[in-house]
């Protein structure tokens, strides 16, 4: 695994990064300038109603939520792969996707809260089952990352983390299905895409959001994976160096004295 690479960048990742930046700029243009606010005319009162400009957060919040699922599911698959194959590639992938997923999940909570204030009339609602299960997911993976920082023998730490990831990911179906299973315990709406209650530029911009945040995810994963791989390579190199130093040390010792404790090697 020894690797002399010192950078996580490559021509391919730079092209991906540039495409991602352009995509983000395009998404912001569509989300905040080209799409219309959600304004409807009330059939009875004739007044305007809807979500107005707050609806624009749809194009950020929903794709980030989906990419959170993707990241944590990637982590779970890689964790299962590690438990089965015990390869460093699986462990590094699991760690990288957990970190990226936690960032996305945090952003989902923040953008959801910002969206909730004008639309729901509250920043936060204790008891909303989707909010709470999402917060629990965030905390579980924050705990996963903390666990990876606790001092332990690397293989044992990787095994523990893999088990935690496989348990934590069980929260995802609860989050996703909560609006159907506990309709009266959430302010969250039911699926818009499943019922096709979105069309034209609004639909296009939402799809663009999925693509762009998919690129953001890929770019972050690529770099975080490479950082993890380099860390592993460095750790292996340090280990090999330490062993070589010990062997060199041994060669300078009076071996008989070291084994039999009878000598006084100097």
């Amino acid at each position: 695994m020894a690797d002399s690479t010192t950078s996580t960048g490559s021509p391919g990742s730079r092209i991906l990064g540039l495409t991602t930046l352009l995509g983000l700029a395009g998404l912001l243009l569509f989300a905040f300038a080209l799409t219309e606010p959600d304004v409807r005319l009330h059939p009875t009162t004739g007044e305007e109603f809807g979500q107005f400009d707050a609806v624009r957060l749809l194009y950020l919040h929903v794709p980030m939520a989906v990419l959170t699922y993707v990241a944590f599911l990637t982590c779970a698959v890689a964790s299962a792969g590690y438990l089965l194959k015990r390869g460093a590639w699986w462990d590094v992938t699991a760690h990288a996707s957990a970190e990226v997923g936690t960032v996305f999940c945090g952003l989902v909570l923040v953008t959801g809260s910002i969206w909730g204030k004008p639309v729901w009339n509250t920043w936060w609602e204790w008891g909303d089952v989707r909010l709470m299960t999402t917060l629990v997911l965030f905390l579980l993976f924050t705990g996963y990352l903390a666990l990876r920082r606790t001092p332990a023998e690397p293989q044992r730490q990787a095994r523990r983390a893999a088990v935690v990831a496989l348990v934590a990911v069980l929260d995802i179906p609860l989050i996703n299905r909560s609006v159907e299973w506990w309709e009266n315990r959430t302010l969250h709406q039911q699926s818009t895409l499943a019922e096709l209650k979105i069309e034209d530029l609004t639909l296009f911009t939402l799809m663009l959001g999925f693509v762009v945040f998919g690129l953001v995810f890929a770019w972050l994963m690529l770099h975080r994976f490479r950082v993890g791989w380099l860390e592993q390579a460095q750790a292996d190199r340090d280990m090999a160096l330490a062993i070589a130093e010990r062997h060199a040390e041994m060669e300078t010792l009076d071996v008989d004295a070291a084994i039999g404790r009878t000598g006084g090697g100097k």
């Binding site: 959600d38 304004v39 729901w120 609602e125 209650k197 069309e199 609004t202």
Partner: peptide
């Protein structure tokens, strides 16, 4: 609190 719907088709 307002429980908005899942309809984004404008009018």
């Amino acid at each position: 609190v307002v429980k908005h719907d899942n309809d984004y088709r404008g009018d």
